[in-house]
Amino acid sequence: MNAIQPSRPPLQPIQKRRVIPRPKRHLRQRSYQVMALESTAKIAVNLVVTAVAASALAQLLPYHSLQQEKLREISTEVKLMEAHVNGLQTEFSRNFDPQQTRSIMQQQGYRFDPSQRRVVVMNKDRQEDAQTQSSP
């Protein structure tokens, strides 16, 4: 068991495998057919995906334009309301300003400060019409 074994295996003649000739043309034609079929399938799938995408876009574009129109209307209304709110805020701050109290009372109550004189502006055309009608 403890015998020394040779360091290299004994030389044996290398047997050449017998090469069986294969019909290469048939395999090449078959691989070209498989590649052609695969490419055709890829193109068909891509065409279907493109058709579905185009159909989806055709349905979404009118909806998108409708939404844009609604957005424009709402934006216009928001601008109008902002202007209205700004006016109301200005009036509110003016109404609660202690320095403006007298002028607000005069505007709303038609009362005047005793130190002020009342000025009445009359139209000259009206005066002449009134005089001509009352003079006969």
Score class of each variant (00 low, 15 high):
Leu60Thr: 14
Leu27Ala: 07
Arg25Lys: 13
Val48Tyr: 01
Ile14Ala: 05
Thr90Asn: 14
His84Phe: 04
Val85Asp: 09
Gln68Ile: 15
Glu82Gly: 02
His64Val: 05
Arg72Asp: 11
Val19Leu: 14
Gln15Asp: 03
Arg25Asn: 13
Gln89Trp: 02
Val34Arg: 15
Glu69His: 03
Ser75Gln: 13
Leu71Arg: 04
Met81Ala: 13
Ile43His: 08
Thr40Met: 03
Ser39His: 12
Leu88Arg: 13
Gln67Met: 05
Val85His: 07
Lys16Glu: 11
Ala53Cys: 06
Val49Ile: 05
His26Phe: 08
Ala41Leu: 06
Val48Lys: 01
Ile43Asp: 11
Val52Asn: 07
Lys42Tyr: 12
Glu38Trp: 02
Arg17Tyr: 14
His64Gly: 04
Ala36Trp: 01
Leu47Ser: 14
Ala53Met: 14
Ser39Phe: 01
Lys70Arg: 13
Ala54Val: 05
Leu57Asp: 04
Gln59Leu: 09
Glu38Gly: 06
Asn86Trp: 00
Leu66Gln: 09
Arg18Val: 15
Pro23Val: 06
Arg72Ser: 12
Val19Asn: 12
Lys16Ala: 06
Pro21Val: 08
Ala36Asn: 13
Leu57Ser: 03
Ala54Arg: 03
His26Gly: 03
Val52Arg: 03
Lys70Phe: 02
Ile74Tyr: 10
His26Asp: 13
Leu88Asp: 14
Ala58Leu: 09
Ala51Thr: 06
Lys42His: 06
Val19Pro: 02
Met81Ser: 15
Leu80Gly: 03
Gly87Trp: 04
Thr40Glu: 07
Gln29Gly: 05
Ala44Glu: 11
Gln15Ala: 08
Pro62Val: 05
Ala58Met: 09
Ser65Cys: 04
Lys70Trp: 01
Glu69Tyr: 00
Tyr32Lys: 07
Ala53Arg: 09
Arg28Cys: 14
Val48Glu: 08
Leu57Met: 01
Gln89Met: 13
Gln68Glu: 13
Ala44Ile: 14
Ser55Arg: 12
Ser65Asp: 15
Val45Ala: 08
Tyr32Gly: 02
Ile20Glu: 13
His26Asn: 13
Leu66Pro: 01
Ala54His: 03
Leu71Ile: 11
Val49Ser: 10
Gln67Cys: 07
His26Pro: 00
Glu73Tyr: 00
Lys24Glu: 10
Leu57Val: 02
Arg30Asn: 12
Glu38Lys: 08
Lys79Glu: 10
His84Trp: 02
Lys42Pro: 00
Leu61His: 06
Met81Arg: 14
Arg72Phe: 01
Gln33Leu: 08
Pro62Gln: 10
Glu77Pro: 00
Ala36Leu: 11
Ala36Cys: 06
Leu27Trp: 10
Arg25Val: 13
His84Tyr: 02
Ser31Tyr: 11
Glu82Trp: 04
Val78Ile: 15
Gln67Glu: 07
Gly87Cys: 08
Arg22Cys: 11
Ala36Ser: 15
Thr90Gln: 09
Ser39Thr: 10
Gln33Asn: 15
Arg28Met: 12
Val49Phe: 07
